[in-house]
């Protein structure tokens, strides 16, 4: 775990920053990641559901209502 954090420090370059700058960076990154996860948790199921509906209707063929419209 310590090794992993060390690699993270080196690759992002924040190894050379002062501790308070590191915490600013970590906080920002953590917030951004948390928000991404939260939004995906909230919105992805809805979108997946809609998409599934859409595709399943395509597969099922023409809905009856359009036929009724033409008539």
């Amino acid at each position: 775990m310590g090794w992993l954090y060390y690699q993270y420090l080196l690759i992002t370059g924040i190894y050379v920053l002062e501790p308070w700058e590191q915490s600013v960076f970590n906080t920002l990154l953590f917030t951004a990641v948390a928000m991404v996860i939260y939004t995906s948790y909230v919105f992805v199921p809805v979108h997946v559901h809609l998409a599934l509906d859409f595709f399943s209707e395509l597969v099922r063929g023409q809905p009856e209502s359009t036929v009724a419209l033409i008539n």
Partner: peptide
Amino acid sequence: VLTYMGYGILTIFGYL
């Protein structure tokens, strides 16, 4: 790519 990203982060903190 990671190197450029590192320089980018350091530059942002430099501006700060």
